[in-house]
Every structure is written in C-alpha cells, then in structure tokens.
Design a protein around this nucleic acid. Structure first.
Length: 905
RNA sequence: GCCGGGAUGGCGGAAUCGGUAGACGCAGCGGACUCAAAAUCCGCCGCCCGUGAGGGUGUGGGGGUUCGAGUCCCCCUCCCGGCACCA
C-alpha cells in the first residue's frame, strides 16, 4: 500500500465537479511518495490487491438504506454450461460498469448473481460422461463462479442462488399450486416430439430434419396431457402495460406486442349435418369482409372433423398420419410445402347456404383459434397458392381502383384492406374493410352463427416437460382421487440428485423412491407426477428472490419491496420475447396474490447484442449433428477472403461451414475468456469487450485489438509513474481555480473537460465504447501536455484524476491501484463522479466550416458570440467564397451556429 | 414464411438534433532507439487521377426529399436474433 504524507479526505459532493481531493500545500510541495510505485504495469498483482481490498471491506454486500436512491442492476443469470464465454463477459461487464458508475454517483447499488441451473445440457452431459446432472452442474457453477470473481465484478455474492436447489424451486411449486387454485394452471393435451426408438420426448433442438438426433428415427407428433399456465388471461394487461415501460427498447416492445398479437376479427360457423347430427365448423378470421369469396375450408390434421372423415377414407387417414410426422415448429410450418386433401364433408356457407368443401391442410394449426380456417384464395396469399395447386376456385370479392385482378399470379394488392372495396359480394358491394366487417358480423350474429371477437396470437404457456433435470410438478396421482395437489406442508417435492439420464425417457419414472407416496386426500398408496417444469419458470422470478433475505417461510419478503422493481436489466436480445414475457406474467400473478407491489419487474432494459462466432458442423451417421470448435478447424479462403472450405484438424476430413451464429455450448463455438484473463488480466478483457462495439450491437468475435487495449492500460500505468515522479512534485500553491490559462494549457484543459462531458453523456446512453475511447483521448492529450510549470502540473493532476474516475467502472482494478499510488485517496469508489466545469469549456473563438453550394471549401474563425449578420459578412468577404462563387451572387446563406456556413449561389 | 434488428476504410467502430464522413483503436507501411529482437516513441494510412498543388469520388444496391443525407422517405439485396420443448 502506498503511504501518503497527508491523510486524503473526501470532500464535497458530486457538485464539486472535476475538483479533486486536495491536501494542504504544506505537505504537497515536492514530496514524492514514500515508496516509489512499480514502474511496469503488473495486471495480476494489481488485480489481486484490488480484489483483496474489496473482499476485506465487504464492499458489495447490499443493505437497504434510507436516504439514498437505490439502484438494482441485474444481469441475466447464466446457465452453468461449464465455462464463461465472451457473451457472458460482455453482459456482466456492462452490468458492472453501470453498477460501479451508479455507486460513485451516490446510489445504493444491488448487483446479484446466480445460476439458471436446470436444463437440458446437464442431461446431455450425463449421457456423455455418466455424471449425474447435479454433480456436473455444481462443478460448473464452482468453476464459473471463480471465473466471474477473477473479472472483479462488484457482485453481492451473499445473495447467490441456484434454481436447482430445493430452497429455491420449492417456491416454483408453491406458486404453481396457487395458480391451480385460481384456475391459472390447468391441464390439457399437448403436442410433443416423440422418438419411437428411444421412447422419449425430444426438444425441438433435438429434432434434426424430422429425425431424432441420437437415433435417427423419424419423429412423430404425439398428444399427451400436460399443465398449462393461462397467460392469455393477462394478454390485455401484458399488451397495455408495454406503454408503462418507456425504459425498454422500442424494438423489444414492438416484438412483444406483435407476439401477443391482438386482433379483432369475427369468429363464425359453417353449419353442416353429419351422421344425422347438426354441427358447426367454427373458424376465426380478420378478413370477414372477404367472406363471400370463400371457396373451401381447411382444418388441422388433429381436428375432430378430420378424424371423423378419415374413419371411412383410408387415403385421408394416411395423409393425416403423414401430417403427424411434420415438425411442430412454426418456422417449419410456415415454410413447408402446403399440402391438403379433401375430406368429402361439405359445410354450408353461413350467409349464402352455398355448399363449401372442407379440406385437411398440413398448414393449419390446431393450437391457434379453433383449428380451422376459411379459405379465400383471391385475397390470402397462402390460400391462393393452395387453390392454384389443387385447382380450387378463386373468386375476387375485393377490388382496388385502377388494378386488374388476374388468377395468373398473386399480387400484393389482393390482400390490401386499406383501399379495397367489396365486389361480387351482393348487398356488401361498395363497402370498405371496416364497414363490410361490421355489416357481415351483424348479419352472422342475427343468424346466431358468429360475432366479432378479439383473438390473441399468444397461446397459453405449456410448462410440463417429460424430463428429469427440472423442478418437479407438485402433483400426486391417486387411483381413487385422481390428480391431487401436494399440500403446502409437504413442499418441496425434492428431486433426487443421483439420477443419470440415458436418453430413453425420464429416469424419474423408474425411480421408486421418488414415485411412491401416499395420496394426501385418501392416504392410499399413490404415484408422484414425473413431469418437471419448463426452465423458463425458474427464471421468471429469480430477480425477486435475490431482492429478499432468502427466508424459508416465504417466497419473497419485505426487503423485496425496497429493491424491486429492477432498475436496470441487462441481457441478450434473444430473450426479447419469451423470458421477458413470462417474467412479466409471473410478476402479475405474484402481484395478484399480494406477494409483491409492482406491475412490471424491469423498469429499464438493455438488450445486449449477441456475440457471434463461426459455426462448423458435420452430419452424424444417424442424422444427428456434430459441432466443431473453431480452433479444431483449418480454413480455406477464396481471393476475397470468403470461407470456401473447412477441414477438421483431427481427421483431415471436411466439415460444413454454417456461417456465423450465437456463441453457445451446443454449437461449441463459445470463446472462453480464461486465456485472455490469464495473459492480459481482467481489466484488459473488460476494456477490450467494452471498446469493441456499442452493447446493443451484434459482435462478431475477433481478438484482434486486445493488444491495443492492453497497450493502453500499460500507458495509463506508465503515465501514472511519470506523473508521480516528475509532474506532481511541481505543484505548489493551488492556483488552478484562479489562473488564467494560456493557449495550450487552456486548450488541454478544455479538451479534457469536453471529453468528460462526452463520456458522461455516452454513459447515460450506454455507449461504453466511446467512453473507452474518450479515456484514450484523455491519455493522448495528457501525454502531450506541458509539464514545465506548477499550473501545468495542476492541470495534468486534474486530468489524471478525471481519467482514473472515468476509467474506474470499466477497469476498476487499475483505477483503484493508481488512485492510491498517486495519493488521490484511499478508495476511488468513494470519490465523487467528475462533472465538467463550464469555465473550462468556454472559448473565445470558434472555427466554422465554410461551404459553397454544399461543398466543403474552407473554414472561418469567428468570435464565439458573433451575430449571424457578422458571420455572413465575414463568410462572403472571405477569399474562399470569392474563389468558388465565381462572381455569382449569393442566393442564400445558411448559418448553423457553431458549425458551418453554406453559401448557395 | 412471419416478427424485430443490422450493413460505414484491410478490420472493430465514430459522427449524440439533417451540418467537416472515417474520431479512437487494430492491422499494415516508413522511420528513431537497439549488436539484434521485443518493448517504446515519431510519421503515413478510404478509393481513383495527379510528381505535386490539387481535383474527383465515397457510408450494401437503386430511386426521392433538402442549400446540405451515413442520418429522413420508397423499393431491393445480404446478414443476425426470435418463432412458443436450447437457454
């Protein structure tokens, strides 16, 4: 520790601006530090010492404190996949910069960390290595925690949690039971990917081109019972409350609104008679104005009408069976070839009574609306293609002025509802979209065959997973009583931690110790539910748990009311919809149960861009995909640098290059920051990732430039050394405040304060890359500064103190060390955040750009307060203007104060 | 396919409200120091024409608005994220 001659003291508050910690001049004159500081930057030594200091002073344990504004800064917790990757470093450095910046600005900061510890990768690892998921997960957490600690994040580790621990997930179970009571949780059938060989349910990720990733077997859709959460009950509020989130990026709010997808349309029925019974085929449409153009109806393969028709139609049964092998992913549904087959069943048009044939279509989703649609080929592109393919009638019922309809090819205006007018529609002819929908809905209602209805794209949240490594669903199955909720006093239902999944079904289903239990109602022997919860449940409320004291008698306690809502949430843009929507929903449920007081959990959201890297793969023999890490690959490039081929180093055989994609464990393209930290230190890693690009932008990984970041920190250190030895001793009586600075000194001070102003602005905009570059520019300026006078030394001292503080959120270790070495104070975190001083920014003259006809032709120096008339006169009188105006009179002179003059002639 | 976003030198990026395009850094090139190398320091560095002064051109492509467009509007291409069981 450096020894300073006088005790540094904090003085004044944030208003004191760029002023720095001072000592009486009696001591400050020409006294070097007692022990000369290390000349060379030694990152590991600096970082060890800084971290030891923070640990010893328990710097980051957050305690509620009245009289200080609170700042709850939360980064999305990681899945403990094994090692950190650069995406994590980026995410957590952003959070740490914001946390430390706020600490220095007087906020009471909470920055917690934990582990999203349930999930599929642990089961996959178990299959590969035979290690139980619990052990694998715990080991990964231990390693990654140490990595996070080595990066020096200001985290309150006392609040660490892991979602795979019973004291956490018991509250998933508890809240699930409350939801059951309120009818928010309910049971219905769900469609899953079934691998007939392994006899197991697969995640979408495990299905590759319709086949199981391990077995290569063709996957079937299978309907099984599962629990759902009625998120649609909150659809209206989830949509409306997006307006209460001005701190969220517009793009995220737009994506959520589109996902929730409120549409006002008409739900109506086509009556029909079958097997001697009157029935109705219900459909929903937002284009009821085109109802007179219906040429057929299409139902999903799982629709009861399809099932009935297939009974005496083997060809149709075969087609429906074929549909069962399709994907359950929307992206595949939308891009696959649209196929269909007539059912032979006819329904009646609700308004005209015309016979309408029904088809089974592989593109109709049973889970959306009623699983059936009316088809109007003339005005829906998908129906148009379908009708062309199967030779079905196409009847135009909407016209747009000046456009000619033809069934030859689809044109975008066919679907236009802004300018279209009904034609060939009987009494509705001439009506526009809204009028037609209104009139048709009225007529349908009069016949008791339909009405206007609000429809949501949002579907209820299916939470049952047929998997081991997750939170058990607290239900007991009794032969006599049926599905019985586990009583609260028997919670948690603890997941056994010694199972090793082998890929063939859920090991819980074979675990007698787990399964066997007594029915809570009748006491007879019963079986536990073996499904576990979707891991999105775990991550839907962890932020509230961090904010409470982790008691075992409540999900959250009153400390939550102090910290919540989260002031700043930071995480990858890939979570823009699902995780964030589920968390918002879960919060509202907790609120309605009286557990919390807020409507929305996250006031401000920063969506970090993905860190991308090259992806290499090879198809396995059974149809699965093996991924290769980029450092296992040799690349071939064409002349333009484009990748043309890739070879695995291990076996010399080619692999597929899949372009660039998100760093992830499963694609094996993550870059471990460990070697970076070991070679350069945490500060370099942090500085580099912040400097590389603004946080919201996707970042293609490259370590080119790390050397530059390291070089900069070495220069900072070296300058600190020069400052301590050669510059600081020159300071005598403090005279900066009163001094009239001459040209270059004034310019230097102005530059430092201008850069500070820019850095402060950029911090509010979360543009950390330009904060880093401002720090670099400050150093460039300071290195060139005059050092020959006491005042100059004082200007430099002020500049160094600003530089270190601006740098401290990004590179806290080196800032901490230099702050002490240079005797500014004991702990830089206690120093006030610097603010630019207006007097230092002022200037007498400004330089304006001089344009003639919009082209840059020269410049013009004018007094800073010159009136427009004077500027115009000076501009017109300039040699540059005379030369380029070529004798033409000025038609117009545009003056942008402080910026430019443009003479138009 | 649908929803959301992006594209600026060899590379990462800057330009904050429509006002000097390329800040800052990387790589490269030239030089100083050195027996040499590393480190460090100084200089150059969008493209084209020109020995030079200088001129032209330039922000994925095409069109438009404006005294002035990387920025605003329309159309297009490519890339990234999401699409409900990866997290």
């Amino acid at each position: 520790m450096p020894i300073c001659f006088a005790t540094p003291h904090r003085h004044a508050g944030p208003q004191s601006g760029a002023s720095i910690i001072r000592r009486s001049s009696r001591f400050a004159v020409a006294r070097p530090p007692a022990r000369s500081m290390q000349e060379k930057y030694n990152a590991s030594e600096v970082e060890r010492a800084a971290q030891a200091h923070w640990n010893a002073s328990r710097s980051f344990a957050a305690v509620p404190e009245r009289g200080k504004p609170k700042y709850y800064c939360l980064s999305m917790f990681p899945y403990p996949s094994g090692k950190l990757h650069m995406g994590h470093v980026r995410n957590y450095t952003i959070g740490d910069v914001l946390s430390r910046w706020h600490m220095m600005r007087g906020f009471n900061v909470l920055q917690p960390m934990g582990w999203d510890a349930f999930g599929l990768p642990a089961e996959n690892a178990a299959m590969q290595n035979g290690v139980p998921p619990a052990k694998w997960t715990d080991d990964n957490i231990a390693y990654m925690k140490q990595q996070l600690q080595s990066l020096g994040f200001a985290i309150d580790w006392t609040r660490e949690l892991a979602t795979c621990k019973p004291d956490y997930y018991r509250w998933n179970q508890w809240l699930f039971l409350r939801m059951l009571e309120k009818g928010i949780a309910y049971k219905k059938t769900q469609v899953v990917n079934w691998d007939p060989v392994d006899q197991t349910v697969l995640a979408n990720e495990q299905v590759i081109e319709g086949r199981g990733w391990r077995t290569g077997a063709v996957i079937e859709k299978r309907e099984i019972p599962g629990y759902y959460l009625r998120i649609t009950r909150y659809a209206e509020e989830l949509l409306a409350d997006l307006d209460k989130l001005p701190g969220w990026p517009e793009r995220v709010r737009t994506m959520q609104a589109n996902w929730i997808g409120k549409s006002v349309g008409v739900r109506f029925a086509f009556p029909y008679e079958l097997d001697g019974r009157q029935d109705k085929l219900w459909v929903f449409t937002t284009r009821a104005d085109t109802i007179m153009g219906v040429s057929f109806c299409a139902v999903a393969a799982e629709h009861p009408l399809a099932t009935r028709a297939a009974r005496d139609n083997p060809a149709l049964a075969a087609f429906i069976d074929e549909c069962r092998h399709g994907s359950m992913m929307e992206a595949d549904m939308a891009t696959m070839e649209k196929k269909g087959m007539p059912t032979g069943i006819f329904v009646a048009h609700p308004l005209t009574g015309e016979k309408i044939q029904t088809w089974v279509g592989n593109y109709v989703l049973m889970s959306y609306g009623d699983g059936a649609v009316m088809a109007v080929p003339a005005h829906d592109e998908r129906d148009f293609e379908f009708a062309k393919h199967y030779g079905l009638p196409i009847r135009q019922v909407v016209a747009v002025d000046g456009q000619t309809f033809s069934t030859d090819a689809w044109q975008d205006w066919y679907a236009d509802k802004e300018t279209g007018i009904c034609v060939n529609s009987g009494k509705y002819d001439g009506l526009g979209y809204e009028a037609a929908v209104g009139a048709i809905a009225t007529d349908l209602k009069a016949r008791n065959l339909g009405d206007k209805q609000v429809q949501w794209r949002l579907r209820d949240w299916g939470v049952s997973r047929q998997r081991y490594w997750g939170c058990p669903i607290p239900i007991i199955h009794c032969g006599a009583c049926g599905s019985v909720p586990v009583p609260d006093d028997q919670l948690p239902v603890v997941l056994p931690i010694d199972c090793v999944p082998d890929g063939s079904g859920n090991p819980l289903a074979r675990n007698e110790a787990f399964l066997a239990c007594a029915c809570p109602q009748c006491g007879q022997p019963a079986r536990r539910e073996t499904d576990t919860m979707d891991t999105f449940v775990d991550s839907s409320w962890y932020y509230a748990r961090y904010a409470s004291r982790f008691g075992s008698d409540a999900m959250v306690d009153d400390e939550t009311a102090y910290w919540m809502p989260v002031d700043q949430y930071i995480g990858g843009i890939e979570h823009a919809i699902l995780h964030l929507l589920y968390s918002r929903f879960w919060s509202k449920v907790m609120r309605d149960l009286g557990l919390v007081h807020y409507d929305e959990p996250f006031s401000h959201l920063l969506t970090q861009g993905m860190v991308l890297n090259h992806v290499f793969s090879r198809r396995g023999e059974k149809g699965g995909i093996d991924y290769f890490a980029p450092d296992e690959i040799d690349l071939a490039h064409d002349a333009g640098g484009r990748i043309t081929g890739a070879i695995a180093k291990a076996d010399g055989r080619p692999v597929d290059y899949d372009g660039i994609g998100t760093m992830s464990k499963s694609k094996r393209n993550g870059v471990d920051p460990q070697s970076l930290i070991e070679h350069y230190g945490a500060d370099t890693a942090r500085f580099f990732i912040m400097f590389a690009s603004p946080p919201e932008q996707t970042l293609e990984w490259s370590d080119a430039g790390v050397d530059g970041a390291y070089r900069f920190l070495r220069r900072v250190w070296a300058f600190g050394h020069v400052f301590a030895g050669d510059i600081k001793p020159k300071i005598g009586a403090r005279q900066l405040a009163a001094a009239k600075l001459d040209g270059s000194l004034g310019e230097l001070r102005r530059e430092i304060h201008l850069l500070l102003k820019q850095a402060n602005y950029d911090l509010t905009k979360h543009q950390f890359n330009t904060v880093a570059s401002a720090a670099m520019k400050m150093l460039n300026a300071l290195e060139k500064a005059p050092r020959d006078s006491a005042v100059a030394a004082e200007v430099v001292e002020e500049g160094v103190s600003i530089l270190l503080r601006v740098l401290s959120p990004i590179t806290p270790h080196i800032a901490h060390a230099l702050w002490r070495e240079l005797c500014f104070g004991d702990d830089i975190r206690a120093a006030p955040w610097p603010e630019p001083i207006e007097a230092a920014l002022a200037q007498d003259e400004v330089e304006l750009v001089l344009q003639v006809n919009g082209k840059l032709r020269g410049s013009l120096r004018v007094p800073a307060d010159a009136p427009k008339e004077a500027i115009e006169a000076a501009a017109l009188a300039s040699d540059v203007a005379k030369k380029y105006m070529e004798g033409r009179p000025a038609k117009k002179v545009v003056i942008v104060p402080g910026r430019l003059v443009n003479i138009v002639c």
